[in-house]
Amino acid sequence: MGSRLSKTGIALALCGLAALAASPALGHGVHSHAKGAPKPVLVLEGEFVASELNGRRLNRGEDTPKATLIFLPNDGVRGSTGCNRFSGKLVRSGAKSTRFGPLALTKMACIGPAKNLEVQMLSALRATNQISKFGSEVRLLAANGRVVARLQTISARPETGLSLYGKSWTLVSLNGQTLDAQSARPHVTFEPNRISGSTGCNQFSGVHQRADGKSRFLNMAQTERACLAAIGDPMATEAAFMAALSQVDQFSLTGNQLTLKSSGSPDVLVFEAGN
């Protein structure tokens, strides 16, 4: 009798252990309260440039148009199609679906490579149903999982997006010389992939290119008005400012102060944010 009870007890114990091992709450260290928990929402921040659209690798030469995408706080987005600028918001449906809401787009006419790039970029944005991030690469995916765009990071620092854009930066120091606040000082504004502003005399605009932690200003164009002023020499300031800007390759933003300088010359431009 005792022998039978002993065998029965052993059998029950073995069944109990098997049940515990098979339990989804305890097997492999998974706790029952975690089952079905929502995945964390992907946090997107920084500025990216398109390297592939709809399976086609893009030419990223210095003089070719570039499509960019900037992720801002609170799911805001800005960017460039390579011709026009756009802005809008991300629309999330849980942790799996993320798409672009209605985008506001400038209406500049595009031709040639810029037009083709814009068509491809807008097509990719419209098709996006999910966004994933792999190291320095962001991928935009369609509903079926197909990758419609690959974008490489330009800068993962939020200050190069939200804090740089949407402000007018006034030049306060040019190559170590403080500029008179009463004079007509140069000022600049930044948009995705572009720079524009005033030399204190003439208007200018051009391409702002950032890659591998370096800034460059290309294809600069300006008006050609002669200027006189009661304070300072605006033409001399203009010449020194544009010469320094053409040599810039280093970018530093700290709070309300922006510094542009050259690794190959002593030129240094210091700006402060203002109206």
Rank of each mutant, 00 (worst) to 15 (best):
G176E: 05
L141D: 00
S132Y: 01
I154G: 09
L151N: 12
Q120E: 14
S173Q: 15
S198R: 08
I154Q: 15
A184K: 13
D180P: 13
T199P: 03
F190E: 01
R185V: 03
E137H: 08
Q182E: 10
L140G: 04
D180F: 06
S136P: 13
K115V: 01
V148F: 01
L151D: 12
R146Q: 12
Q152V: 07
Q152R: 08
M121F: 15
D180S: 14
T178G: 10
H187F: 11
R150P: 02
T128Q: 09
L151A: 13
E118N: 05
A109V: 12
T189R: 14
R150A: 05
D180Q: 11
L122M: 13
M121G: 06
S183C: 06
R157L: 11
E159L: 00
Q152E: 07
P113A: 15
A149M: 10
S136I: 02
S132E: 02
L125N: 06
R194G: 06
N116T: 14
C110L: 03
L117V: 02
S163R: 15
L164F: 03
R185D: 00
N202H: 08
P192H: 00
Q152A: 07
I154N: 10
Q182S: 11
S196K: 13
L164C: 01
A181V: 14
E191P: 03
A149H: 07
G145V: 01
F134K: 13
T189H: 12
A109Q: 13
L174K: 06
G161W: 00
R146W: 03
T170S: 11
Q203W: 07
R157D: 14
S196Y: 10
S155N: 10
